[in-house]
Simulated scan of single mutants.
Amino acid sequence: MFVFQVIGAFWYFFSIQRETACWHLVCGNRSGCGNSFSCANTDSSVNSTLLHESCPVNAPNTTKFYFGIFLEALQSGIAQSSNLPQKLFYCFWWGLRNLSSFGQGLQTSNYLWESCFSIFISILGLLLFLYFLENLKTYIKLATKSSDKNGKTSKEEHKNRRGKREEKKRKRKDQLESEEAVSMFPTRLALQERKVFPLPSLKVQAMGTRYYRVHQLHKSITPLLVQAETYVSC
């Protein structure tokens, strides 16, 4: 935004400079031009008609003086206007229009510095366009990378949630099997003592195994306690 305004400001400044250059060229050593072109100059000897005829703006004459790219500023009245907002916005628009088009619409004269200014506008417009493309490319790359990362993260989260659900199901299944084994252990133990089927062939869970060991310990200690009670009673 600032670049557009600066280019427009230089264009406005050079427009006034070219107009005064035309006046100086016309006057030379002629009489009737006075000592100054200032608006505050009240010298009646200044022949404004001579200046306007020799430096035509509304009906440009290239044989007399060609303003080139600065003719628009003189024809639009921006150079003569005292309305500051009007000057600012018009110069901004001129800079934006010509930088965005790389100076393709500029019709220059053979004035050296005007040609240099037009070349500078074209190169600067191209550089700004390349800078914009580079920023756009970087933004698209970051957006794509972020999208891929989010998609990968979503897949990993989905996989983790699925793994957690399966782990919960497995733990729940093990818990139910363990509870079933504990609840059925006394029945199976009684059947084993009756030799209906051998106990070692059963798949006993951890809780059932502990219950079985406690039962066997109690069974082995019981005769000892009976003998001890008999000895005490004697």
Rank of each mutant, 00 (worst) to 15 (best):
N61P: 07
G163W: 06
E156I: 15
V196I: 11
N41G: 04
E180T: 03
S48E: 12
R30D: 05
F67G: 05
L176A: 09
R18F: 06
S154D: 12
L217F: 14
W11F: 12
Q5D: 12
A206F: 11
A206H: 14
M184Q: 12
N41M: 01
P186Q: 04
Y90L: 06
K141T: 09
I16V: 07
L96Q: 09
K137W: 12
Q104H: 03
W23N: 09
N35T: 08
C33P: 03
T138I: 14
S220Q: 10
C55T: 02
V204I: 15
G103N: 00
R170D: 07
S183K: 10
T62L: 08
S31Q: 12
E167V: 06
S154W: 14
A21E: 02
T230F: 07
S45Y: 07
V3I: 10
F13V: 03
F117L: 10
T108L: 04
F65K: 02
T49C: 07
W11C: 02
W113S: 12
K87W: 00
E156L: 15
V182D: 03
K155M: 14
H158D: 12
V196A: 11
L224C: 07
S82V: 03
A9I: 02
W23I: 02
K137I: 04
Y111P: 00
N47A: 02
G68E: 09
G34W: 00
V232Y: 13
C91H: 00
S45H: 03
L88I: 11
Y139P: 01
Y131E: 05
A181K: 10
G77N: 10
T153S: 13
T20I: 08
A73F: 04
V214C: 13
L50R: 06
L189P: 03
R213E: 13
Y90R: 07
I221H: 03
S220D: 05
F102W: 00
K137V: 09
Y66L: 07
Y231Q: 09
N58V: 10
R18V: 00
L128K: 05
C91I: 00
T63D: 13
P85D: 02
G105A: 06
F2A: 15
A143W: 13
L217D: 03
T222A: 12
L96F: 08
S54A: 15
T62K: 05
Q107I: 08
S15A: 15
C39F: 05
W93H: 07
R18Q: 10
S147K: 15
Y90N: 05
Q75C: 05
D174G: 01
A59T: 08
F14Y: 09
E72H: 13
K164I: 12
K173D: 11
K149W: 05
K171E: 09
Y90D: 02
Q5M: 08
F102Q: 02
R210M: 11
Q192M: 06
S45D: 10
A73M: 06
L202R: 01
V6P: 00
T138C: 11
L199Q: 05
G95P: 11
P85E: 01
T209V: 07
K64I: 10
Q192V: 02
S48Q: 08
H24S: 06
S147N: 15
L106Y: 01
